[in-house]
Amino acid sequence: MSAAAGADALDLDLEQVRFMLKQQGYVIPEEELVEVTASLNALIEGLSNMQQYGPLQKEPWPVLVGYVGDDHAQ
């Protein structure tokens, strides 16, 4: 799967976004639903691309007191 196709595979469609908003109590005009869907998908794509960064896979803070493991603070 190409990177572009992979990115588009994450896209939500209008009905999915409509449902998610309704679940939160919002029913919004169709014109805005289109822009919300487009903007949301853009943000999802951009943030999803962040997962490639290795440092993000490490725990920023040592949450397991006394844990000694790979690259984790003691």
Binding site: V17, M20, L21, Q24, Y26, I28, E32, E35, V36, S39, L40, L43, I44, L47, S48
Partner: peptide
């Protein structure tokens, strides 16, 4: 628009 995006942005992201 911004608020609706913020409302349903997946928690994992």
């Amino acid at each position: 628009v911004s608020s609706m995006v913020g409302t349903i942005l997946p928690a994992g992201l």
